[in-house]
Each structure stands twice: as C-alpha cells, then as structure tokens.
C-alpha cells in the first residue's frame, strides 16, 4: 500500500485537447474536484488523464492557478487575493471564456468564481450594443421582439436606450 508520503510525491499526467501532456503534482491536481473524484474512485494515476475540452494554453493557466492555491495553504489570504487579481489582468475575452469552461469542467470553484466575476464586471454599466460587440453576440430579435423584451421589464432599461 502506498503511504501518504508517497502519495504526496505522486504525479499525474494530464493531456490537453490539442495533445500536449502536463505532469502535475497530485496535491496541485486536488484543487480540481473532478480530478479529486477520479483519484478517489481508484483511477490509476499512472494513466494519462485526457481533458478533451481544454486546450494547452488554458490548461497551463489553470494549473498555474491550482499550483499557487495548493501551495498557499500557509501563506496569507491577502497574497492569494492579489495573485488572483493579477492572474486575470489584461486577459483577453477569448482566454477568459476558455478559462471559465475549463474551471467549470474541472470543477475548480475558486477559479470559476474569479473568472465569472471578471466577465460580469465587463458587462456592468455597459450599453447592450457594446456588450454584444465584446461578446460577439448576434442579435436575432426583430425590432418588435426587442421592444417586447424591453417592455417586459421596463424598469431595468430606464436610462438605457
């Protein structure tokens, strides 16, 4: 039987959607509930774990986040907070969406929280035309439908033409 010390040194291999492999320490991988469940259910850590929905660039970011948070148990919360805000700074929308998808898929709550908050902050206080542009959302309403949607919750649109 493997001892707990051996377990701590164990490494896992994760494979991104575009075929890159990442060797990750187990305690870092445990930040992901998905991986945790897989390990708990006796998935052999010798196997390569495929993550078909996550590309290499995103996976590297995700693992960076996990590493910091896994190692930070003794460090101060303030340090983690500033890491979190630095982490997403200047990130383009595409990368952010991929990060949300990955965090959602791998069940990393903290990462999902900060990434979703960042997207929410982008929407905040912007007219919908601009939000459509930023997110590449195609407006499929007819003018009549759009007016109806607006009428449904008129109060929320006050001051937003």
């Amino acid at each position: 039987m493997a001892s707990s010390i051996e377990n701590n040194n164990e490494k896992l291999t994760l494979k991104s959607s575009d075929g890159e492999e990442f060797l990750v320490e187990k305690h870092v991988a445990l930040q992901s509930t998905l991986l945790q469940n897989m390990l708990d259910s006796d998935c052999s850590s010798a196997d390569v774990i495929p993550l078909p929905k996550i590309d290499a660039r995103t996976l590297a970011l995700v693992l960076g986040y996990c590493k910091k948070h896994a190692d930070a148990s003794s460090s101060k919360q303030g340090e983690l907070n500033s890491f979190d805000s630095e982490f997403l700074k200047d990130m383009d929308m595409g990368a952010l969406f991929n990060l949300v998808l990955a965090a959602n898929f791998m069940e990393i709550k903290g990462l999902l929280d900060i990434a979703a908050q960042k997207i929410a902050d982008t929407i905040k206080d912007k007219p919908h035309q601009e939000v459509r542009e930023i997110f590449h959302v195609e407006n499929d309403y007819t003018p009549e439908e759009e007016a109806a949607v607006r009428e449904e919750n008129r109060w929320a649109f006050e001051g937003f033409p």
Binding site: E20, E21, V28, A56, L61, L63, G64, Y65, K67, F83
Partner: peptide, 14 residues
C-alpha cells in the same frame, strides 16, 4: 501562472 515552460510541467505536445 503564465505558462507551461517550467520544470513541473513537462510539455510534450506537438
């Protein structure tokens, strides 16, 4: 945090 070129991550991709 920014990449996958450090020693912990062995990038074997193509």
């Amino acid at each position: 945090p920014a990449g996958h070129s450090t020693d912990a991550v062995q990038n074997t991709g193509h």
